[in-house]
Write a protein that binds this DNA or RNA. Structure first.
Lengths: 220, 220
DNA sequence: AAAATTTTCCAATAAATGATGGAGAAAGCA
DNA sequence: TGCTTTCTCCATCATTTATTGGAAAATTTT
């Protein structure tokens, strides 16, 4: 039998799925404490008790949202990995950055929710999902920062996390940065992508060149 | 006559100052909606109405906190700028990153509050302070990304913001990243600094070399 | 020391918020 | 069609939260 989340995903028109989608937006915009079950229900256009009927209490709904975006993100990362497999590093980075920023700009609540979870604490105890470490290790491997199997160094994980967080920043911070820079959406998004390329690619490329110099490794 | 904030800063033992300090910590940890006046008062060990007596309503207090950390940050940036003035780019970046990370790790609520303001929306309307654009421009100039006076390009501002946000990330995300990487505080902080150097310095240095190649400029 | 002031706390209020019970509508099934 | 199950809403409750009035305590001023 399918889990509640799978069920909600199967039919995006179902009430469960519509509530989940609204919850993503509202939790993403205001954070856990800033979002209220009333606002979410209002966003869907239903009574508040219908929401409770489908999802249990606020914590349960929030957990479902976190799980849902985490799942989405995993899929997207898999898509990226498939696309960049076998290419040289600079190209891998270029494509990966482009695909990830495009994806995240289309689902802004993902970046928001992830960053809010990284940075701010909730007064209710909520269990962590442990997918992030796996994600980070996966990315590190597909970037050639670690062997295809075996452990990934802390150093590599931190570099990957720094890169991911930088992307989230420009997506989640769009409203703020745009008001600061006074640009329209299209310009901003294109410039954000460019800035990310500027900031992140040279570090990894240069690192690879140096490692190649001292200990030659094969790179397609 | 001194403003309320200046007054609070003058005597750190004053009730006003103690409340402000607690508010920084609590707002920083839980965000605007997650923090309650009760928790803040409790943190100081006073009755909740004493808090209202000194700072007015919750919004006022929050504004004061934002203003306060913004002010702090400005001072720190001035200190950094003084220190790095006249040095070559790579060294400037190295010192600036070190000083900023050290400072922010000692005042973790600063990074938290700044990022929360960038990313999440408050349901209460709160006025923005407009110091960030000035900060960004100042940093851009002191990094040689723009002339000593005259306007700073959007491109340069975005690069600077990306750099600043990256630092905030590793500070505000310490708890999360440490639990993910399973390291102690000292190791983490040192590795975070190293990672920031790794990620950020090559981009700017390489950029300078390229610009020097096409249009030679003097750099001390 | 008496008076004036500032500061602090207790108690209370109004509004917002998370959550539920139960009646009726809608949908599935016999 | 009638019966059962699922779903939705209204009304309501308990708790939390922001906020205030006013008395008592502490401090300053005269």
């Amino acid at each position: 039998m399918p889990s509640p989340l799978q069920k909600a995903r199967q039919d995006p028109e179902s009430m469960k799925a519509r509530i989940l989608a609204a919850a993503r937006r509202i939790f993403g915009r205001f954070g856990f404490h800033g979002a209220t079950t009333r606002i979410i229900a209002q966003e869907v256009g239903i009574d508040i008790s219908t929401l409770y009927y489908h999802w249990g209490d606020k914590n349960d709904l929030y957990q479902a949202v976190i799980y849902d975006i985490s799942d989405d993100l995993g899929r997207q990362l898999a898509r990226v990995e498939k696309k960049i497999h076998g290419r040289p590093l600079a190209e891998r980075l270029d494509i990966a950055l482009g695909m990830m920023t495009d994806y995240l700009f289309e689902h802004p609540e993902v970046s928001n929710l992830i960053l809010l979870r990284y940075f701010s604490k909730t007064r209710a105890e909520l269990t962590w999902d442990h997918k992030v470490p796996e994600f980070a290790s996966g990315i590190a491997r597909s970037m050639g920062l670690a062997g295809e199997d075996g452990p990934v160094s802390t150093e590599a994980k931190m570099r990957v996390m720094g890169m991911m967080m930088a992307i989230y920043n420009f997506v989640a911070g769009e409203e703020f940065l745009r008001s600061m820079l006074d640009t329209d959406q299209e310009t901003y998004r294109s410039q954000a992508k460019q800035t990310l390329r500027f900031l992140l690619i040279p570090a990894f490329v240069q690192d690879q060149e140096q490692r190649r110099g001292s200990a030659p490794a094969d790179d397609t």
